[in-house]
Amino acid sequence: MLSRPGLPSFDYVRAGSHDEVVRLLVTGGPDVRLLMGGTDLLVRMRDGVVRARTLVDVKHLPGMRTIAYDSAAGLTVGAAVTMNQLASNADVRAHYAILAEAASAVASYQVRNRATLGGNLCNASPAADTAPAVMVLGGRLVLCGPEGEREVPIDEFFLGPGKSARQANEFLTAVRLPPPRQGARGTYLKLGRNREGDLAVVGVGVLGSPSSEVPPGYAFSIALASVAPVPLRATAAERLLAGQKPGGAAFAAAAQLAAQEARPIDDVRSGVAYRRAMVESLTRRGLETVWRGLSAASSGRGR
């Protein structure tokens, strides 16, 4: 079915409190949708994919647009923090650079002025660009519901395309990241059909840090976008790297494993074979980039 020329009818409510949001969710059920930047929601409503009678605008609630960093507690990002806010925030850039990088990989500058981190995650698209970054950073989602707040680790959040562990009567208020690992380096590599501005055909987030917990002395986390029904941790590749000396051979083997872990589909954006191959290419490139950063830092320390 073709998209409508404009948005279908709905009511708009600007939420005044957390309680009001929960009350509206409980009473309205599926007729109620939460609105932040609207860059997913409004597009889908015009397309007829999403229907709603009421949109509840939650972005103005207290704390929704703030970024708070504390070296002991880590980072708390309000759910309605925009991509541009993230990408330009000094703390995020200094301590969670991969998140800033992922945020600036989303869409275009204008869209990033509206698109929010929380919306990107709640939308639960496999192509969500910030998901791999939040995954490798060990993020937790703060959900507010009738029983108060609870935290869900991001690795347990995504259940399928558009499906998440968020209950119908909950909403996301913030994303929490643990304190940055000492000396960590990360990168988010995105391949689209255009150089920038496209959705990810494949996205790969890689984070590495010195670690005494694994024999090689470095731990790596890898997460993938757009190559499975959900954003995916490449756990087999991570395990392999936990047991091998970092370097070309290990990275090549890990990249191959990551490609095998991916469960891509054929769609108009790309086919299975290419997506798999690109997981390998980008994972390898990502590992090498991160490794260069780690090696430079360690030789810098040594000096």
Partner: peptide
């Protein structure tokens, strides 16, 4: 048509 929108019918942008 499977890609009758800008989402999936991509054209050259400033960077391409």
């Amino acid at each position: 048509p499977l890609n009758s929108s800008f989402v999936d019918y991509r054209i050259v942008t400033t960077l391409d």
